[in-house]
Write a protein that binds this DNA or RNA. Structure first.
Length: 917
RNA sequence: GCCCAGGUGGCGGAAUUGGUAGACGCGCACGACUCAAACUCGUGUUCCCCUGGAGUGCGGGUUCGAUUCCCGCCCUGGGCACCA
């Protein structure tokens, strides 16, 4: 048999498509297995060799599980709303749907070449109205829900209304913002607008005036996870802080549950850690400081160190703090207002970049210390953030480095309350040591003192124990076009959700994809943008993560018109058993999906809260970039070994123009870009050596390797095998096309084995090889260690290749073992060995341990831990017999070398160590 | 600064309830086939001062025996960060 991968790929891909080989069944008596990939955003650049890594791994699992008798759900779709298509639309006027459609077609073509066993009948696209009507439906569920802290879960808003009607906010424990309080009488006297304004403080989807990340270049607000180092994640544009009226989702209500839920999940430690960091739980207390200048008011702070209360020498409030204006004395007003303005102008990036410059202003006001009653000066500074805790802090310069720096800068007093450290040089932040200068806390260790202080604060009614989270509510509205319209209409300015029968609220046509002249979002350009009843509609759209927060549910029942998915299907498919994707989604997608999962569970729509039971993050495949040296200020390109210390710039060269000796293809290079057309080379006709370096694989670094090209040259099976063979799935590793010859050689060896097949019974050695392989493959499949699976197969094939013949039965079993990794060749082998249909569902070979039994063991014999020779011993021998054999061995005397044998250690089945001394 | 993961040949990597370090593959070298090249096949390939010695980031420790366990460092990648 000859190996012709191009023919095999075409033949079997057509077969699978025609026979719909990989449609998942429903209903089914089989156990289910749901294996999911993070669906891609279809970008214009197409796939490079790094993208399919995770898809190949999940496909191997899917195929393996089918052989194991599972009903496998292995779908694929597209996260199709997003900024790049819209930016392109702004530039060209082309509707983003057209760009998106074209990109999807390209993605599909590339995916199809690799031979994935996706059930394409379940494809989803988040930008299709039959999909996003259910995204809108979920938004409506969120709108009509609140978080009841008494039951620890979300409930229908009706239960809140009933509570308010019966007893007002008395006895109510709900997650909310603002300061909602009412009596049942007040509630019943509210008019419609007042009622809604009140309820908005509780809804899980709500509108509020808050400080948001505004990105002027993109013309939209961004969620915290979309801002990296003070710039937008997409495009790297500056982001500023700005108060705006915005739709948000109350994810903060779920902070503790999202934290606790991690314990039950089979995710990597680092991914769990990323989520824990993002949620940012800290324990402490809220403490109120009285304000003698304002009757009845107090300044509330959050602290994790209530033990240091006696070390408070000043307080700081955020420049955006609502009480700042009323606190500020007339004498200080000018200075404070100037400071407020200056800090409002600073972008988030400036604020982060320059945390060393200390700035602030004194308000002129004093609070009174809750324990001592002493006056405490109140300052304002932007090192205190309005978005965390209460937006105000008690400053303890002796034991907090930020407060210390501030105190030093403005020459404020520093009072030590924990022994240890040298306060002349720096603050003492460690939570170790005994309390001093602290009245009733004196002598206690920090941890005891924290506890004691909280008890005291509560007893005196000065505050209460409190857990604070860093996780903020997620801003949900985007001032953009290419996203799901938010299904809300306004009646006299009061928001209400659209009736369900008006869904989907379809994205309207607009004349341009830009904001209006008054700064309204693009949807405001749509003609008659109003509900059927004629009410004006919301003009912001949902963020990119809306559609991806629940798509795993839609795959279960992708065509359903009456529900996001039928209940019996959701019950059957349930959680995702294996989710494969990149770790860059740790704080965005994975957190929001979990949040929506918890809400949908609470509201009774799905039977589980955690969508993804097991998560695996595939590593990055890096590219090996090539650089040519250009002499500074010239068009002369020099071989790297001819530079001789001259100054040069390193220029990226597309890896297409590099041969296997790292030499430049001069003609290709000159024809590549106009700027190189006039290039001259040194040496004038010898080879031009290039530098190589491992970098991220990307278009801009010209080191992209395209999977289609690999499939065309070597076949899909070689690509699949090689991506896995490169190393452990989770690890990042560079792509080197040269290495492909190893796996193509293996595939050829397999086909050559077919020429040796015979109808004779399998030999004992042949079966030992086979069953060793079965054992290894089974183990590796559970651990997703596909790199070692490939090695094990190579070893087995090498062993069989040394035989003069191999039995048909062994080859058949081997074909099944191979099929998850190299399905095209495996199907072909199966057919040639007499299989009548696709092998995709034939049962996996059964391990028979009898074939693994060895008659004899090669014991390595060590002298003082160094291996010197081997003895072959029948497995039946006892340790004492082995020892006797070694003592009597002819070589032993030489290594003992006249010394005494102190001890002989025999580890049965493993090793012999002779201790000589 | 805090937290997490990881450091093994020229390269990708293998081996951890402590038991032959370097499987498998690339690359390289030599040989066979060929007029020749490619393909294919075979042999070798951690390093060194090579009958021996050293060696899994570095320095200690436990052990008959350590890539694996313990202590202290260094480096790389990732997460969080004026979060009180």
């Amino acid at each position: 048999m000859e190996y012709r991968p191009a023919e095999l790929d075409a033949k079997w891909q057509a077969y699978w498509r025609e026979h719909r080989t990989f449609s998942a069944e429903f209903p089914s008596d089989k156990p289910k297995f749901y294996v999911l990939d993070m669906f891609p955003y279809p970008s214009g650049a197409g796939l490079h060799v790094g993208h399919p890594l995770g898809y190949i791994a999940s496909d191997i699992v899917a195929r393996y599980k089918r052989h194991r008798g599972y009903n496998v759900l292995h779908p694929m779709g597209y996260d199709a709303f997003g900024l790049p298509a819209e930016q392109y639309a702004i530039q060209t006027g082309q509707h983003p749907a057209i760009t998106t459609e074209a990109n999807i077609a390209r993605y599909r073509e590339q995916l199809d070449r690799i031979g994935f066993s996706f059930d394409w009948g379940r494809e989803v696209r988040t930008c299709n109205a039959d999909y996003y009507q259910w995204t809108q439906w979920i938004f409506i569920q969120l709108f009509h829900a609140w978080f009841n802290e008494a039951s620890g879960k979300a409930e229908s808003i009706d239960t809140l209304i009933a509570h308010l009607a019966a007893q007002g906010t008395e006895g109510l424990r709900a997650t909310h913002h603002g300061d909602p309080a009412c009596t049942p009488e007040e509630w019943s006297n509210f008019d419609a607008a007042e009622r809604e304004a009140f309820l908005q403080q509780f809804r899980l989807a709500f509108r509020s005036e808050s400080v948001v990340n505004w990105c002027p270049a993109l013309g939209t607000v961004l969620a915290n996870d979309e801002v990296v180092d003070g710039r937008s994640e997409r495009g790297g544009h500056p982001v500023v802080q700005k108060p705006m009226l915005q739709w948000s989702l109350r994810i903060s209500a779920y902070a503790q549950r999202l934290l606790d839920g991690l314990d039950s999940l089979d995710w990597s430690d680092s991914m769990k850690e990323t989520q824990r960091n993002w949620i940012g739980r800290s324990q402490g207390a809220r403490v109120r400081f009285g304000l003698p200048s304002i009757e009845g008011e107090a300044l509330e702070v959050f602290t994790t160190r209530p033990d240091t209360l006696y070390g408070v020498t000043f307080m700081v409030i955020a420049p955006e703090h609502p009480m700042l204006a009323s606190l500020t004395t007339d004498a200080q007003r000018e200075e404070v207002e100037a400071y407020q303005e200056a800090s409002a102008r600073r972008s988030e990036r400036d604020r982060q970049a320059d945390t060393k410059t200390i700035s602030g202003a004194f308000t002129g006001a004093y609070a009174s210390h809750p324990f001592t009653g002493a006056p405490v000066p109140i300052w304002t500074s932007d090192y205190v953030l309005m978005g965390y805790g209460t937006g105000a802090i008690m400053a303890v310069p002796a034991h907090d480095s930020r407060d210390y720096a501030f105190a030093k800068h403005f020459d404020l007093p520093i009072q030590a309350v924990v022994a240890g450290g040298d306060l002349a040089a720096e603050s003492y932040d460690a939570k170790e040591g005994a309390l001093v200068n602290s009245d009733f806390l004196n002598g206690l260790q920090v941890k005891e003192a924290i506890e004691r202080a909280i008890v005291e604060v509560e007893a005196r009614g000065l505050g209460e124990r409190r857990v604070q989270y860093r996780l903020r509510d997620a801003v949900f509205g985007r001032q953009r076009y290419w996203g799901e319209p938010i299904p809300v209409a306004y009646r006299d300015g009061v928001p209400e959700t659209l009736p369900l029968e008006e869904l989907p609220l379809v994205l309207p046509a607009v004349d341009a994809y830009l904001p209006t002249e008054d700064g309204e979002p693009p949807l405001a350009r749509a003609a008659a943008w109003q509900s059927r009843e004629g009410l004006p509609l919301e003009t912001t759209t949902m963020p990119g993560w809306a559609g991806s927060s629940w798509y795993f549910l839609r795959y279960m029942d992708a065509q359903n018109d009456g529900a996001f998915a039928a209940k019996d299907k959701v019950d059957y498919w349930n959680q995702v058993d294996l989710y494969v994707g990149g770790s860059e989604h740790g704080t965005g997608h994975l957190l929001y999906s979990r949040f929506w999962g918890h809400v949908l569970k609470d509201l009774g729509h799905i039977p589980f809260a955690e969508p993804f039971q097991k998560l695996v993050n595939q590593g990055m495949i890096q590219g090996i970039s090539a650089f040519v040296h250009r002499l500074e200020g010239t068009q002369t390109y020099v071989s790297s070994d001819a530079l001789q210390g001259r100054k040069s710039q390193r220029i990226h060269v597309d890896v297409r123009f590099v041969n296997e000796k790292d030499e430049l293809d001069r003609d290709g290079f000159k024809a590549w870009l106009p700027e190189f057309a006039q290039a001259t080379f040194e040496p004038a006709d010898g080879p031009i050596k290039l530098d190589r370096e491992v970098e991220k694989m990307s278009k801009s670094k010209h080191n992209v390797i395209n999977p289609d090209a690999i499939c065309a040259d070597h076949g899909a099976d070689a690509l699949r095998l090689y991506e896995m063979f490169l190393g452990p799935l989770e690890q990042s590793k560079p792509w080197d096309t040269k290495g492909l010859s190893g796996v193509t050689g293996f595939l050829r060896k397999v086909t050559r084995l077919m020429d040796k097949r015979s109808a004779d019974a399998a030999s004992k050695d042949e079966l030992k090889t086979l069953h060793k392989l079965i054992e290894k493959v089974e183990k590796d499949m559970e651990n997703l260690s596909f790199n070692t699976t490939v090695s094990a197969m190579m070893i087995a094939v090498n062993e069989w290749s040394g035989q003069t013949s191999i039995s048909t039965s062994t080859l058949r079993e081997f074909a099944i073992l191979l099929s998850p990794l190299a399905p095209h060749l495996a199907e072909e082998l199966w057919e040639q060995l007499g299989g009548a249909t696709s092998m995709a569902y034939v049962p996996f070979p059964v391990l028979n341990p009898e074939f693994l039994v060895e008659d004899a063991i090669q014991y390595p014999v060590q002298f003082n831990g160094k291996t010197r020779f081997f003895v072959e011993v029948p497995t039946t021998n006892t340790a004492a017999e082995v020892e006797a054999l070694v003592r009597a061995h002819e070589k032993t005397e030489g290594y003992v070398d006249g010394k005494t044998i102190r001890k002989v250690i025999v580890v049965p089945g493993r090793i012999v160590n002779v201790v000589v001394g």
